[in-house]
Design a protein around this nucleic acid. Structure first.
Lengths: 130, 130
DNA sequence: GGATGAACAGTTTGTTCATCG
DNA sequence: CGATGAACAAACTGTTCATCC
């Protein structure tokens, strides 16, 4: 106990539940649904985003998708395994499966609430201003 | 032209029109509508936000409101004047008026488009994932 | 203390660089 | 070059500090 200097965490946490749903949560919601449905890998899901949202001018970048996948992994909601891409070049891919179905469902429901809240907020603004 | 070193701007601009509408635009939309309707001042509009969005758990902070007002001023869409608050303490307030009605309308329509796009995006996610 | 304004700081997310086959 | 991952940096916005009645 000599002159140990205890460095306290000095980060002040911020107000969170504020304006609209965050992109990360939105992306993770789609990732979960797609993983439930089959065994797509990261790049493929990125392109699914492009297709799905072309009409809305929304194009998430690859980092956002990978960060979403990593968070779901860290939270134990999905697991990952390696496979060799069919076809030719012994390209390695990472594919995903749901690890904890209850957690997955819980997370999706939570995102659903934030989605509904956000939609309500935006519709309210249309009603109030137009 | 001796050894003048010309410092070039090295900031790389980013892709903008991406995910959802930004809080700043959302706030400015309400500010414009309220200013059109009367002569409210900053603090009062902040409290109007609290009342309007209590049900959505959304509570913008005062800086966001003032920054929105300053941007509208800088863009010449509104003007500002000083008045003494009725009642007592010779408290000074800043009140606002529309300066350029065409620009105001143009801005609101632009925000409307982004609102609609955002609502579409979120509804799409509900449809796809639930 | 009420209102306004500005500096500062934490978070989110887009861009760039690195690695591996 | 295709896929993945991580470091870095810009943009956004929440918190704190300053000022003026």
């Amino acid at each position: 106990m000599e002159d140990n200097i205890i460095k306290e965490k000095e980060v002040k946490p911020r107000n969170r539940d504020n304006f609209l749903i965050k992109q990360r949560a939105f992306v993770k919601l789609y990732l979960l649904s797609w993983i439930e449905q089959g065994r797509p890998y990261g790049k493929e899901m990125l392109e699914d985003f492009y297709k799905t949202f072309k009409q809305f001018n929304y194009k998430p970048n690859h980092s956002e998708v990978y960060k979403g996948l990593h968070e779901l992994l860290d939270d134990g909601i999905i697991t990952r395994s390696r496979i060799i891409k069919e076809g030719s070049k012994r390209q390695e891919l990472k594919v995903y499966q749901i690890a904890n179905m209850d957690e997955a469902r819980r997370y999706k429901n939570q995102v659903k609430e934030d989605l509904d809240r956000s939609i309500g907020l935006l519709n309210w603004a249309v009603r109030d201003n137009f």
